[in-house]
Nucleic acid binder design. Structure first.
Lengths: 101, 101
DNA sequence: AAAACCAATCGTATATTTACGATTAACTAT
DNA sequence: ATAGTTAATCGTAAATATACGATTGGTTTT
């Protein structure tokens, strides 16, 4: 029973880590996260200005990062301010650190 | 010039990190890496026995991990022994640690 | 109310990923 | 030489990811 639980937990944390890794698996998304984590929150428009891709594509990447739980949006009408989701950021950090020992 | 170099370096390490993240973005590959990193090297056949997927699929995942540089194969005929590529493992560890601060 | 602005979503095309069974390649052992 | 073992590769199908322009939905400003 204990083993089963542990295996299940392990499988779950592996799923979760894979989900985070998937979100990190694109240079554009890494750049977005880097911008958000170093220069604090920013608006979608700021990102669109900086990144060499279409607005709709930036939105798509933001959606994926949001779905993975790494960022969160906050309405500041008519703009939307994105920030790192600190809780999951920490969770991801711990998962990766533990994985690499 | 300095800035350009730095940007290039930054872009490169982001590319490299994305490459590693992509390799980590699948539960099966995480499991393979976990097995290799905790119980040392093992043969493809050992992995095929443990994993609930076809041999050809395991081979495909191994190929991706090899291409990402996270593992390396060594012929021990007629088997092939896979191990963690320590140098790149360390590199990935550092990249992720630096990324999450 | 109308015009303007911002960002998400839609529709779409193309590329990549994931999985499988079947086959092939390389080597060992008989 | 032949048979057997091991793992990679091929061919293929289905799902997912990536990118774009166009459109839509909210909100604000005029």
């Amino acid at each position: 029973m204990k083993v089963l639980t542990e295996q299940k937990f392990s499988a779950n944390s592996q799923e979760e880590m894979a989900k985070f890794a998937k979100a990190l698996a694109h240079p554009t998304r890494l750049e977005i996260l880097r911008l958000l984590s170093t220069q604090s929150c920013c608006f979608t428009g700021d990102l669109v200005e900086v990144l060499p891709i279409a607005q709709s594509t930036v939105s798509q990447h933001l959606k994926e990062l949001k779905n993975a739980g790494l960022i969160q949006g906050e309405i500041d009408a008519p703009k939307i301010k994105y920030c790192i989701n600190q809780e999951n950021w920490r969770k991801a950090k711990l998962l990766f650190a533990a994985f690499f020992e």
